[in-house]
């Protein structure tokens, strides 16, 4: 994908899934360390050499949830993505409250996992939060809630603005449909309707049409990406 390798620690006790994760993530160009035990994972993560942690909620030795809580208590801020087979009602909130940054319910599409890991690993540090996002000649001001391309102001509806904001925050990365549903609409379920597609086509009509170069791309079978260099 042309992106620098991400160092990932995976805590997963089930050998099948662990092997599948290692193989898939390595193929995607990442460096993967596998761990079967929560305590081991805790000590490895404590060293702070990883860009992102993938943690199964249920792991022997130390429960995944507890491990992340302990890490946060120890001041380790490495982004954490929880994996779970449960998908219960309160599980997501519980995971986020424990200090997790994202949450993925098994089964998941691999593209989904990779997209989320990229988003987590390349998240800008909190200190340098920008208020204006820029992709090519497209500008989005998060404070004034305005969008302009090539100096021309573009009017977006609130949800369209949020969608474009999320895309631009992850410029150059693939953003999946589920990630958009979760972050733009706070929908943590799977609607059968093509909500994302309908909104996306409107944004495209406003942002890309009549400006020559199309910034928003559809990545088949994966999601969307906004990129000025493509």
């Amino acid at each position: 994908m042309g992106e620098p390798a991400v160092k990932i620690l995976v805590l997963e006790d089930e050998p099948d899934t662990a092997g599948y994760l290692r193989k898939g993530l390595s193929q995607a160009g990442h460096v993967v360390d596998l761990c079967h035990d929560g305590r081991d994972a805790f000590h490895l993560a404590l060293e702070g050499v990883y860009d992102v942690l993938v943690v199964d909620r249920m792991a022997p030795g130390m429960d995944g949830l507890k491990m992340v809580k302990s890490l946060r208590a120890a001041g380790v801020l490495t982004p954490v993505l929880f994996l779970t087979a449960l998908g219960g009602i309160g599980d997501r909130v519980e995971g986020l409250e424990a200090g997790g940054d994202d949450y993925l319910v098994k089964p998941f599409a691999f593209t989904e996992l990779v997209a989320r890991l990229n988003a987590l690993a390349r998240r800008p540090p909190i200190a340098e939060v920008q208020t204006v996002l820029q992709v090519g000649d497209l500008q989005l001001d998060m404070l004034k809630r305005t969008v302009a391309r090539a100096g021309r102001r573009i009017d977006l509806k609130p949800q369209e603005f949020r969608l474009l904001e999320f895309l631009m925050k992850h410029a150059g990365q693939i953003v999946t449909r589920t990630m958009l549903l979760e972050n733009v609409w706070s929908f943590h379920f799977d609607p059968k309707t093509n909500i994302v597609e309908s909104h996306m086509s409107r944004i495209r009509a406003k942002v890309d049409r009549g400006f020559g170069k199309e910034l928003i791309q559809t990545v088949r079978g994966a999601g969307y990406r906004i990129d000025a260099s493509a």
Partner: peptide
């Protein structure tokens, strides 16, 4: 239910992964 979920979803997920690959 959780066993069924796990035992059926895991192979299905793997199947999906193979198709994806």
């Amino acid at each position: 239910s959780s066993d069924v979920a796990h035992d059926l979803r895991t192979p299905l997920t793997r199947l999906r992964g193979r198709l994806e690959a």
